[in-house]
Write a protein that binds this DNA or RNA. Sequence first.
RNA 1: GCGCCCGUAGCUCAGUUGGAUAGAGCAUCAGGCUUCGAACCUGAGGGUCGGGAGUUCGAAUCUCUCCGGGCGCGCCA
Length: 584
Amino acid sequence: MKSELTRLIAEALRRLTGSLLTAPVDASWISIERTKERSHGDYSCNIALRLAKVSGQRPRELAAAIVAALPPNPWVAAVEVAGAGFINFKLVERAYHEIVRRIHAEGERYGESESGRGVRVILEFVSANPTGPLHVGHGRQAAYGATLGNLLRATGHELQREYYINDAGRQVHILAVSTWVRYLQRCGESLPFPANGYQGDYLGTVAATLLEQRGTTLRRTASQVLTGLPADAPDGDKEQYIDALIARARALLGRDFEQVLEFSLQAMLADIRSDLEDFGVLFDRWYSERELIASGAVEHALATLEARGCLYRKDGALWFRATQFGDDEDRVLVRSNGQHTYFAPDIAYHLQKRERGFDQLINVLGADHHGYVARLRGALIAMGQPGECLEACLIQFVSLYRGGQKVPMGKREGQFVTLRQLREEVGNDACRLFYLMRSHEQHLDFDLELAKSRSNENPVYYIQYAHARVASVVKQLAARALHYDAELGLASLAYLDSDQEQAAMRELSRFPEVVAQAAAARAPHALVHYLRELANGFHTWYNAATILVEEPPLRNARLVLALAFQQVLRNGLALLGVSAPESM
RNA sequence: GCGCCCGUAGCUCAGUUGGAUAGAGCAUCAGGCUUCGAACCUGAGGGUCGGGAGUUCGAAUCUCUCCGGGCGCGCCA
């Protein structure tokens, strides 16, 4: 409809060119918007206001001239000039009946569009280090990424969803040694847990399983482990200590060290995967950093940078000239000890994403990673890629509140709340919706009591209830020995002439635009707000009108509208990953 | 110190190429079920859009500045 009206305006402007307008007007200047207020008609155009300046006309006079020059159109019932010079369109009723028919015909596909056709997108999200369970912050990224993926698919993008597994590097060695210390403690050895180890209780469980499977074959005495090691924090340096401990573990365990590592890693990954799967968060591929490294991708990336003269050696390390590409300082890629930093494989991974043919690289990241974006983009540019192809969606932090009190979440002390705990406490539906309710750019206060409450204070039920209410009406049909005649209903849409019904059809027609806009703006929360308004429209109408009336045409017309509501609610909830119950 | 994000009703927040009288939910107050589910609906009160200046027909939105909060600035990941 918008494009239809844009065409009308463009045609009118063409007719005025040479008389009122000296130069042709670019079509991109024409914007058609939905009116906020019913009295302003259905759509509005501000072109006269925008052109007033360049053409030297008074806005209202120009608007009147444009209106006079508009070609006739069967969908437009009335056009008028209002306010400072807005051109308002009122559509014929049939235009809205058409929407109801479309929803009926398209069913679960209603809302989809082609705005992203031909665009290949790789969406990387969560990608949490496999060194512990996911926490509530990851949960927000998971919900956001999953829904953004749904929105991108719904708008025709060619999408790949990936989880990048950081299964190489120092942190997995720390994971292995942390598990081993827990294991030794379980064996009865008395030794302290390293300050820089992974503190959470979960490793105790992993160690217990390890003990079951391997018996005491991995046991070494505390003095074997500790003798000659530097002091741990707070007296010494926790980094030096953990590195020495890792070296000692390797020396004492030999090849078994790798097995402890692998065992711990797989345990963590299994936990993360099942957690996400239970949350309805799916990936097309789990991409292993180790496999990436083994494939030679890092050498390839370094060679690409080298060939472009973007590397240099200093203090025995290999540096990337990041400052030449928008970063604050140059970055080390290969340390003086020969080990590469985490940054090197990351560059390789993103170069490879481009080489796999993706146009857009969307990364969903925690807000604390924002400093990292410029660096990565710089590297892509340095390797000859367009910097705009990388897009970072930074997800702000989550605070949990219980009864007005902030729940302490210290990751260091291992007392953070896990995603699993949160899901078990409030349920997946409330969890997904609460995560997505607010703009991702906004710090989120997650109220546990509110999310759990089965009351009118909880927005989750408001939307689901509207869906269930329609199902309930349909069930009533049988109880009253009536049946639903879709054909009759669709032929009787003119009976839907109340204010609520007119407003309902207007609201329903917005859905594809909302989906497209939410996808384009990477803003799933816009969909939540729309669904709330849609549910409000339904509840208002439901309270004002009786659906199951005597006259068959009116009854079936209202049933068609009710089912259209239900369809759009269901489609929207599906995009959010929230269930649409028939009863609750 | 430098950089990024945020500041809108008592509380939690929408408001994205600058548009018409700044909107929701919760909370508060007043109403509505012998009728398809009251987990609902109707109405009311509540605002210097953090302060100030600028840009223009028009600013919550853009620019500058100040104030206040969050986060990031490693040969850690």
